[in-house]
């Protein structure tokens, strides 16, 4: 464990908690892409199957359970509890255009043709594109509540910190996970446009983020 990865995990946790509390307290999921949240729940489900087969550390196990519970709880809030506030017409991204290529690639490019390994690879590839329905929804509606932009900021920052973690691990322990690194770079690139708007609009105190 290193500071970059720990900070990254904390940013990830903060992002997930920000979103959950925003929906729970406002009793509304307006402007939130339910599709992205379902994809994230799928990412955690396919990645954390090793919860039952390999023990890494208490921290690792606890965080996996927390991420799984919060991810499914968020999906529950969107599609069941506050479904009347869900903008399904704005959440129109065709997720099959993500799932099919990601599933195909995870069979082609992986470390081993074994079920758990292919599912892990699927989760890595899927995570890099899982936010696209949410970003697409914001471009479609032309705006995002500031709390949603803070959620996206921490979510984007988490994987950027993981990039630093992989540089650190490469230089200190020769660790290099090519699949995770390439996907992490792609994932972080998708946030660049958002980061630009976030720093120029939201942090200027304009509250809402309205797209040009």
């Amino acid at each position: 464990m290193n500071i970059f990865r720990l900070l990254g995990d904390m940013c990830h946790l903060v992002a997930i908690i920000i979103l959950f509390l925003k929906i729970w307290r406002s009793k509304s999921c307006a402007g939130i892409s339910g599709k992205s949240q379902v994809l994230f729940a799928l990412v955690f489900t396919t990645r954390y199957l090793d919860l039952f087969t390999s023990f890494i550390s208490v921290y690792n196990t606890v965080m996996k359970v927390v991420f799984l519970v919060l991810a499914y709880a968020t999906v529950y809030l969107i599609y069941l509890r506050f479904r009347s506030t869900y903008n399904s017409e704005s959440d129109s991204f065709r997720v099959e255009f993500l799932l099919v290529p990601v599933a195909g690639l995870s069979f082609l490019e992986n470390y081993a043709f074994a079920p758990l390994e292919i599912l892990w690879t699927f989760s890595i590839y899927l995570e890099s594109v899982a936010i696209l329905p949410q970003l697409f929804m914001i471009t479609k509606t032309g705006e995002a509540e500031s709390i949603t932009t803070h959620y996206l900021f921490f979510l984007g920052l988490y994987r950027a910190l993981y990039l630093a973690n992989w540089v650190w691990r490469y230089h200190t322990e020769g660790f290099f996970d090519q699949i995770a690194v390439v996907s992490g770079v792609v994932q972080t690139i998708f946030y660049c446009d958002f980061f630009y708007l976030y720093f120029t609009k939201v942090l200027r105190g304009s509250g809402k983020m309205t797209l040009p």
Binding site: R5, D9, H12, R47, D50, S54, I56, N60, M63, K64, F67, Y111, A112, A114, E117, W120, Y162, N165, D177, A180
Partner: peptide, 10 residues
């Protein structure tokens, strides 16, 4: 056999 990288990250 190919040593699988232990996925020790979240």
């Amino acid at each position: 056999s190919v040593q699988l990288p232990r996925h020790d990250e979240l």
